[in-house]
Structure formats: C-alpha cells, structure tokens
C-alpha cells in the first residue's frame, strides 16, 4: 500500500477553532490483515468527512518497513499516529469507534449528519 497524501474533497470547514495547519497522520498497518483493511477504510471515511483538505495521511506497511515501525514505537496494528498539530495522539484498533477516533484526533464532533 502506498502512502496517500492529502486527499481533498468537498469543501466543508469544520466547526470550532480554525485549523491553520494540516493534520499529519500516519497509519501503520499490515497489508491484507482484516483489522488493517478496516482501519484504512474507517480512517479514510473520517478524514473525508471531517478533515477535507486539511490532512496529510501516510499509510505504512509494517511488514515492508519494520524498522520504521519499531523506531516509532508501534506495538500492535493497526496503529494511527497523529504527528501534528500538537497534542500528538495515538490510536490502536481498526478505528471502528468513530467518536473515539475523532476525540483522540482533536476533531470536534460533527454538528450535523
């Protein structure tokens, strides 16, 4: 899986404090592993919906880059790391609990559907 960068979609500015900088995310996965596949799908959905044009996502396959994962303290997969802006965050799991993911990433809850 190749890292995908800042996909933008329909303009829909998030409510709350203006985001001046990009949200930099890194998702560690194991290609073909069911949880990883789900995590990629869940994250993409969240980003599309709440971070349109304001995020940068890198997806790293641990099997391909194990040392990179080790160096970055990855323990289990899937593992999502929010690298910036501060505060950083780390989420493990297939990201099925959207609210939890959004809270962890500092994305305010969507005001509407």
């Amino acid at each position: 899986m190749t890292p995908e960068n800042g996909r933008s979609s329909k303009a829909r500015p998030p409510a709350g404090p203006p985001t001046t900088s990009m949200v930099v995310l890194c998702l560690y996965v194991v290609d073909q592993a069911p949880n990883s596949v789900q995590a990629v799908a869940n994250l993409e959905a969240i980003c599309q919906r709440h971070l349109k044009g304001k995020f940068k996502l890198e997806i790293i396959d641990v099997i391909e880059f194990p040392q990179h994962a080790l160096d970055n303290g990855v323990i289990v997969t899937p593992c999502l790391a929010k690298l910036s802006p501060s505060p950083t965050a780390r989420i493990i799991g297939n990201l099925s609990d959207t609210d939890k993911v959004m809270r962890a990433l500092g994305i305010p809850a969507a005001s509407g559907p």
Partner: peptide
C-alpha cells in the same frame, strides 16, 4: 528489548491484532 508497553495515552478504537508486532519481531 522491545518496548511493548502501551502508553496510557493510547486510545483504543476497535479491534487490533499482533500481526504487525510479529512482523517487526521477525525482522529484528
């Protein structure tokens, strides 16, 4: 030594597995 202690700040959302860890261990 591999530090496999999850920091308390780590948030869990959904199921995870050890496939990534085992891949890293295999490499190491």
């Amino acid at each position: 030594f591999m530090d496999a202690q999850l920091s308390p700040e780590v948030v869990q959302s959904g199921e995870f597995d050890l496939s990534g860890m085992l891949a890293m261990l295999k490499a190491k």
